[in-house]
Design a protein around this nucleic acid. Sequence first.
DNA 1: TGTTTGACTGGGA
DNA 2: CTCCCAGCCAAAC
Length: 108
Amino acid sequence: MKNQNFIEQVIAVVQLIPKGRVCSYGLIANYLGTGKSARMVGWALKHCVTIDDTPAHRVVNSVGLLTGKHAFETPDAMQLLLENEGVKVFNDKVVDFKNTLWDPNKEL
DNA sequence: TGTTTGACTGGGA
DNA sequence: CTCCCAGCCAAAC
C-alpha cells in the first residue's frame, strides 16, 4: 500500500490497529514517514470516514485523550466504541494508555 | 496560485 | 502546574 493518497495511507494503518488497542497520531505519522506531521493524520482521519468506514476511534492523541470524539456523530460515540472493544475510557481519556497503546513501528 | 485550516506535539514561559 | 507559541505538512477554499 504505497500508491495511495496520504489519507488512504492513514486509513490503511488505522485499519491495522488490533481491536482493543489504540494508537497515537504521532506514532502513525512516524510510521508513514511523515514524521512530525501528526496533524495530517488527524486531518486525514476526519476525512477518511467520509470515504471509508475507518475505525478512527482507535486513534487518540499522545496522552490517550479522545481529541477527535467530536468528529463522530455524537461526542460519546468514540468512547462507547472503545469501551465496546475492551478499552477503558474515563474522562475522555484512555485508562492505562501506555498498556493499551499499539505502536506500528514496534509491532510491525 | 496563495492562504487557511486542522482529531498534534514538544518545548518554553 | 497550566497556558502559550512555533513547527509541521497535506488538502481545502
